[in-house]
Amino acid sequence: MKTAKMTSMERVLTTLSHKEPDRVPLFLLATMHGANELGISITEYFSKAENVAEGQLRILKKYRNDCIYSFFYAPLEIEAFGGKVIFSEDGPPNTGLPFIKNLEDISTLLPPKIRSAKPLHKVLKAIQILKESVKSDVPIIGVVMSPFSLPVMQLGFDKYLELMYYREDLFNRLMQVNEEFCVDWANAQLEAGATAICYFDPVSSSSIIPKEKYLETGFQIAKRTIARIKGPTATHFASGNSLQLIDDVSKTGTAVIGVSAAEDISLIKGACKNKLTVLGNLDGITMRRWTPEQAAENVKNIIEKAAPGGGFILSDNHGEIPIQVPDEVLLAISEAVHTYGRYPIGSNP
């Protein structure tokens, strides 16, 4: 039986309800490729809301994507706290030296206010432009760094781990500040027109901290934070492993889990069944050297394992496709999703 063609929004909502839509939704999370589409540098591209909005609209059309991804770059939130961002022409903007130099400074740190944090305004403006354009036909995915993962850029990873293990007082204080900011920032994006929020939380991954530590920290923080975000969320582990956490992640109130390419998608799908929609898990690093044929084969394999029954969105494993991935590979991924992703899965040529 064929299913009638759906809009991207209908397709995504159907899969989120663990039913089979007309085909597998494609979330091609290309942030920097929009600069190529506009023929401008990455630095210039991210300097204006209009550039990113236009770039996302071109990606939507060119790759027949099923979402708009209003994510600019990870250290944007660090700019809001007054930290520095280093732009590069061959990769995503990177955070500079951590702005919290002394752990004791955490005791006086305050969450930035959205209305006075200028770096955030271009994202809100881009979301508004995009919403005006796609209306309710295509979901717009906003992004926040989780309160638990943001300190990697605020303090540096090494100092953050030492804080987590040795300075519970300051750790709790930093989480309080970051939770306030995260909730405000997520809700501002939803008010601007975002449909859902991607909650990036790589530090909670079992690649980074043991499960016992996650249950004491990242899990509790996610439960509190997600409960205050006024829209659906997807939790993304940005290449980190999460298979052993799936039951717990489903209890944080999130609807989707972004998973690693290093874990078996069949096992992940089995563990997530009727609890979480799986987002993943093409490997973004090796993707740059794939041929179009390899790209199609990789998409087909993942779809066969994870798509039956719905509850699955095809995407990369990291939430940010490297600019080094050629357009023909992205086009091949899209074509493969449109070919092999038609439901019912299993009866396609």
Binding site: D158, L161, E162, Y165, S207, I209, P210
Partner: peptide, 14 residues
Amino acid sequence: SGNVSLSQVYMAGI
């Protein structure tokens, strides 16, 4: 082999 996490490796090292 995925049996310990990066934070444990780091803390053990320092």
